[in-house]
């Protein structure tokens, strides 16, 4: 997804001369093509994310469209109040590009994980959030939204992610990755690949699971989610993010406000970090988010519901 950004921003910059790319001194082996092609539109502002967002606000007020780039937690959390009082309060087209979809920087340790960025930014009315599932979807989302009036947060995975079929992006919609009838797995970001594996494992156990990628996270795709949830007795949200504030919270809100009967199980981060670090694969297992954990938990739950 990170590479999809690197190539797509070149195309966007060609179409839209007001586009600038500013980085907080990150993007080694990613941003060089842009820097080479548009040296006058590329600025490394140094390791200063608060000022990065302040600069972007001043630039956007004057008509520029600044893309600000860093690792997700550094760009979404460190300058949070600047995002709130800058692009959001002034309704300016600042594009916040956060790399690292949950556990992507697993070996770097908890300081580099972004398991709360969506929850934090989702509290801001006027803040659009897009968390694609695949590089292709990231590209489509970037191309479809670059001219939007207000601020956007793009939460992009670092790696290519697992193998997924092509996924489209439509504003305010959700994308079906697999049909099913017993349970629907709703996912945010690259973890969709894990959910598809879980669905395949459930199929072997006689459970038909649908999988949906929710890439347009904010504003809440209320109607799209309602239409999905009304078809299922059981839904599970799967996200490399805290269960509080992210996709799980959002789906719970839709179910509660829609007075729906759908039962919900939220897979996500529930426990504090204890200092141990590891690969994406290890972290997913550690937090019960790998395909095997998800499918076995769901299998038990569905069996219990059947026995009730």
């Amino acid at each position: 997804m990170r590479n999809a950004f690197a190539s797509t921003i070149l195309d966007i910059a060609q179409m839209e001369p007001r586009v600038l790319l500013l980085t907080g001194d990150l993007g080694f082996m990613v941003l060089e093509p842009f820097q080479k092609r548009y040296p006058e539109r590329f600025i490394n502002v140094g390791v200063s994310e608060q000022n990065l967002l302040g600069l972007a606000t001043g630039l956007a007020e004057a008509g520029w469209i600044p893309y600000v780039y860093s690792i997700a937690n550094f760009i979404a959390l460190r300058p949070y109040e600047f995002i709130r009082n800058g692009p959001v309060l002034h309704r300016l087209p600042v594009r916040i590009v956060g790399i690292g979809d949950g556990f992507d920087y697993g070996h770097a340790g908890p300081t580099h994980l972004s398991i709360d960025d969506v929850g934090v930014l989702r509290t801001l009315p006027g803040m659009e959030i897009i968390a694609p599932a695949t590089p292709g979807q990231a590209r489509e989302a970037l191309l479809k939204t670059y001219a939007s009036q207000g601020p956007i947060y793009y939460r992009l995975g670092k790696s290519a992610g697992g193998t997924l079929p092509p996924v489209e992006f439509h504003s305010g919609k959700v994308e079906w990755l697999r049909n099913g009838k017993d349970v629907v797995l709703l996912t945010m970001g690259g973890i969709a690949a894990e959910a598809l594996s879980a669905a395949a494992q459930l199929e072997a156990l006689g459970i038909s699971a649908a999988v949906i990628a929710v890439a347009h996270i904010s504003p809440t795709p209320q109607n799209a989610l309602f239409e999905v949830l009304k078809k299922f007795p059981l839904a599970a949200t799967i996200e490399a993010h805290s269960v509080q504030g992210g996709l799980g919270s959002m789906v719970a809100e839709v179910i509660a406000e829609g007075q729906m009967v759908c039962r919900l199980l939220r897979f996500g981060v529930r426990k504090p970090f204890d200092g141990r670090s590891g690969s994406l694969k290890w972290l997913l297992r550690e937090h019960g988010l790998d395909a095997a954990s998800v499918s076995s938990t769901l299998h038990k739950m569905i069996r219990n519901i059947g026995e009730q």
Partner: peptide, 25 residues
């Protein structure tokens, strides 16, 4: 009023961005 201020330090950073914007154009 071009910029909302009140959270100290932010206005200065906005102003530096505004100065950069003018230079770039």
């Amino acid at each position: 009023v071009d910029f909302c201020t009140g959270s100290l330090g932010m206005g200065f950073s906005f102003a530096v961005g505004a100065a950069l914007a003018a230079k770039l154009s």
